[in-house]
Structures are given as structure tokens and as C-alpha cells.
Nucleic acid binder design. Structure first.
Lengths: 176, 176
DNA sequence: TCCTTCATGTAACCTGTTACATGATTCC
DNA sequence: GGAATCATGTAACAGGTTACATGAAGGA
């Protein structure tokens, strides 16, 4: 379901687009919240067309098909946003790792966490670049709230890793 | 892979247990980081036994099988923790919703966000209760870092929803 | 006796990833 | 002519959810 919603959202935000365009839009605009490959996108667009949520308005060179969202598609998207309670289940390899951290030696755990901090710093820098670009261009509001959420998420993870590393280090100094 | 790791982790943290026990442990201890149903856990335990990562030490009443982690299982778990770089891909229905928020009317978006705030407050209260219980009993360290992460995650989401609602409300008051 | 909990399993289905496959167009 | 990019698709597999199915043990 979520893939459908994401595609309808992108077609609303960016206007008519091909599967190829949507694959790139996925990477550049929504990858912070959801991911999908072309191998999942193409069949889904075909199903959505069969269900009347999108139409193929024109076929360009190289078999390019440009999809446009229909009235029904917009209704479906709106209904999902307004009525469907979001699943708050959270699945993360990072959190699983966090759970298992106490089974490592303190210095091993600290080394892992310091590496995580670096990775999150890098990611943060990327997101901040994107954020700066978005703020200046003022083109569309789509993505601004999700980008803010991504920034907060990344900062939170970095802070957690940093503070947890310090905590473990201090505890192991006190009783080695 | 992650399911295997989670099961090996639980067997390390809680000692020998049955599939039934592990299903409940999943819900009570690790659900913040990962979820799995019994229909996924039972077949996986059988595969893990075939691969020599766990052994069935005893069979109790009602066909109960108690699994114990093997040396090889411990090695596998350690290796995963120390060598496998965690995927930092983030997929969340909440974030997808955040992306699409600008397509709603301001008052609709604000209402959704206020409801989110309430939901996260509730979740936060639950986690804080668990946290308080864990802190006092001091039984095992397993889960403390993941629980801390869960608390930060939930607070971050609540704050984001709250501040975004305020932001949208103010913007719509200035130019209605 | 009946209900609840304990206990394990399978089957159908949906979602997502990786890899394979093909061909047109454009630019150098 | 050759490489990069545009463009669409399928197949095999892995991971996860929902529903179905069964039965033993324990307590009211």
C-alpha cells in the first residue's frame, strides 16, 4: 500500500512522470522516508493503471510511458492520509544492535558506536546540504517536513551513539 | 538475517527458551527494535537447529522444545555485531505521511499532527514505565541502550509533530 | 465440563531485493 | 563506432503477515 501512496504522492508533487522519472524521484526526494527500485515501481504502475488510479497520457520515444494521476487516484491518496492510522512499528538494524551491545566488551562496543557517530555525521552533512538548497529555492513545500524529520532522526541517532559510547567508556573506567 | 540475530541475542540474554517463550520475549523486550510472530519464529528456529546455531536440549510437555545457543551460534552473533555494517535505510509510514502533509489543507494537517502527538505521548508514558522498572531491578543490561534509543526516538517524533503543527498553524494564520 | 493458556506448526499471500534481459537514443 | 544514459520489463528469492489447524495441560 505504501508504495502506491508514495507514487501517487510523487505524481501529485511533481506532475506527470514516467516510471523512470519516478525511480529517480524516489532516490532524490523521498528516499529519506521510503525506498523502491524500478523493478518494484514498473509493475506497480501497471497495476495502478489497471485500477484506474493513474493513466498513460502519452507514449514517448524508447517506449517511455508518461503517467498522470486520476481523480480517483487523488481521492485514494487523500483518503489514506486522512483515515489510515500510521503504523508506529519500528524495525531497525541499528536498534537491534543497540539491544545487543551489552554482550560485547566495553572497548568493542565503544569502537562500534564511534564509527556510527562518524557515519551519522556524514549523513547529517548531506541532509543539511539538501536542506539549504531547498530553503533557498522555495519551489514546492513537498518534502520540507519529511526533510526536517530526517534531520531530527539523524541528529538523534548521532547523539545517542555519542552519549552511549561515553557512558560505556566511563562505566568501564570506574570498574575495569 | 536480522531475525536470526535477534533470536540468538534473546537466547544469550535470557538463556535457554522455547519458541513460545521467544515469541513472548520478542513482544516484551525487543519489540522496540524488531518484531516477529510465532509463524516466523518456529520455522526459523528449526532452520537454525539444522545449521547448528542452536540445539534442542530437552522436550517438555505439550511438545515443548527448549532451545539453547551453541558455540557456533555465539560466534555467528559476535561476528555479525563486529563486522556487519548496519543498514541505515529508514522506512516509515510516518515519514511518508510527513512528506505528503503539504497536500492537505492546513487545518487537516494540523489535526493529524495533534493526533500523532497524543499517540506518541501515550507511547512515551509506556516506555517510561518500562524504563523505571528496568532501572530499579538492575537484572541485566540487555535492552537498556535500545530502550534509551526508543525513548529518544519517541520523544523526537512527538516534538517534531508538535512543532510542525505549530508551524503550519502559524503560517496559515499569517496568510489565510 | 469448559475455558484459557501453552505449544507448535503450515499455507497463502504480500512486499521488497537482486539479478537477468533487452533495446532505443544520444553524445563523443 | 562505442559508451553512457534512457527506458521497460521479468524471474528467483528472501523476509514478513494473516489465517488456518491442531492438540495438550491446567484451572474454574
Amino acid at each position: 500500500m505504501s508504495l502506491r501512496i508514495a507514487l501517487l504522492g510523487l505524481l501529485t508533487a511533481a506532475g506527470p512522470a514516467s516510471g523512470y522519472d519516478l525511480t529517480k524521484l524516489f532516490e532524490s526526494s523521498i528516499s529519506n522516508a521510503w525506498q523502491a527500485r524500478h523493478s518494484q515501481i514498473y509493475p506497480e504502475l501497471n497495476k495502478m493503471a489497471a485500477d484506474g488510479l493513474v493513466t498513460v497520457e502519452e507514449e514517448g520515444p524508447r517506449g517511455r510511458k508518461t503517467y498522470t494521476i486520476t481523480e480517483e487516484g487523488s481521492r485514494e491518496l487523500r483518503a489514506w492520509l486522512l483515515t489510515k492510522a500510521p503504523s508506529r512499528l519500528y524495525r531497525s538494524e541499528g536498534a537491534l544492535r543497540a539491544f545487543l551491545l551489552p554482550m560485547l566488551e566495553p572497548d568493542e562496543a565503544v569502537a562500534l558506536l564511534r564509527a556510527e557517530v562518524t557515519a551519522y555525521e556524514t549523513r547529517l552533512a548531506e541532509l543539511e546540504t539538501i536542506h539549504a538548497a531547498k530553503s533557498s529555492q522555495k519551489k514546492s513545500d513537498f518534502g520540507v517536513y519529511a526533510l526536517d524529520l530526517g534531520l531530527r532522526q539523524t541528529r538523534m541517532m548521532r547523539d545517542w551513539a555519542l552519549e552511549t559510547a561515553d557512558r560505556i567508556e566511563e562505566a568501564s573506567r570506574n570498574r575495569p
